[in-house]
């Protein structure tokens, strides 16, 4: 127990010592992302806005009637999923990409992974501006409850840190992951109700509903963490909730549990393998 406390103490000391490094790395990413671009940070708002417009045009004929305020529904799912994809993809390369530095100085290696997820999070926070614009344009009634979106955002951030550490560590040993991951996130996107709604085919309350689509729906509800985060988020923004869904407070707990579990897995794998990184990068 005493030894454990000492380890935690050492870890905290190092974290505090390298806090400024984390801040500078995040600043670097954010600065360099839009250096030499005319509109700069505005792109973080414009990009999700424009892609939402495209998706609204493409999908509105299919889903518009069944989903209330489709533009907001869409942009909620889209910015959250984009954040997860960007954060994990960036984090995956965080160790390999900083090989030159990791070979020359002894710094806590997870700082690089953490900085990538954090700079993606900064980008995500900017993209909330796009959400705000769409909410105003579609005359969403603002209320205090909207502020609760910080809960799923923090949960998703922690989830991404865990998943990012796992990916960063595994990618050091198997570079294939870089190629596989883009396909995995593509499949994951289609298995996440971003532009469609689960309600449209998942109807557990109807006794003789289609078994296959009900199974798929149940699978998404139970095993897709992104669903848990996006559903909470939509509830806080437009009070969207399917009839069969559990209360959002339950989803909040579920989301917290998933993200802490992911963080634990990622941290343990990272810690177990990090001393061997140097031999492979």
């Amino acid at each position: 127990m005493k030894h454990g406390l000492q380890t935690v103490g050492n870890w905290l000391d190092r974290f505090v010592k390298y806090w400024d490094l984390l801040v500078l790395l995040v600043q670097r990413d954010v600065k360099l992302k839009y250096r030499r671009s005319f509109l700069g940070y505005l792109w973080s708002v414009l990009n999700p806005l424009l892609s939402m417009l495209v998706m609204v045009v493409v999908f509105s004929t299919m889903f518009k009637r069944s989903i209330e305020n489709y533009p907001v529904y869409l942009i909620c799912g889209n910015i959250l999923f984009s954040f997860m994809r960007e954060a994990t993809t960036q984090a995956m390369n965080s160790v390999i990409g900083n090989a030159a530095l990791l070979k020359k100085a002894s710094v806590p290696r997870y700082i690089f992974t953490l900085s990538k997820v954090t700079s993606s999070a900064v980008n995500f926070v900017l993209s909330l501006g796009a959400l705000l614009i769409v909410m105003i344009a579609t005359r969403v009634h603002f209320q205090w409850m909207n502020l609760l979106i910080v809960v799923p955002i923090i949960e998703l951030y922690i989830f991404c840190v865990g998943l990012g550490m796992l990916l960063a560590a595994v990618t050091v040993f198997f570079r294939d992951i870089k190629n596989i991951w883009s396909v995995v996130t593509l499949a994951w996107m289609y298995l996440t109700p971003i532009f469609y709604s689960l309600e449209s085919f998942y109807k557990p309350e109807i006794a003789n509903a289609n078994l296959a689509s009900n199974t798929l729906g149940l699978f998404i509800r139970r095993f897709n963490p992104m669903y848990v985060y996006i559903q909470q988020f939509r509830y806080f923004v437009i009070q969207y909730s399917p009839v069969w869904e559990v209360p959002t407070s339950v989803l909040m707990w579920r989301g917290a549990l998933i993200s802490l579990g992911m963080l634990l897995i990622g941290a343990v794998v990272f810690r177990r393998t990090e001393n061997k990184f140097i031999l492979y990068i």
Binding site: K17, Y18, D20, L21, V23, L24, L25, R28, K31, L32, R35, A100, L101, K103, K104, A105, V107
Partner: peptide, 24 residues
């Protein structure tokens, strides 16, 4: 080795210092 080619020298001084564990 820790210099980022795209950052300016000034920005790199701070980054490199942070790698060595110095505060901003």
């Amino acid at each position: 080795a820790g210099f980022d080619p795209n950052l300016t020298a000034k920005e790199n001084i701070f980054l490199n210092g942070a790698v060595l564990g110095h505060s901003r």
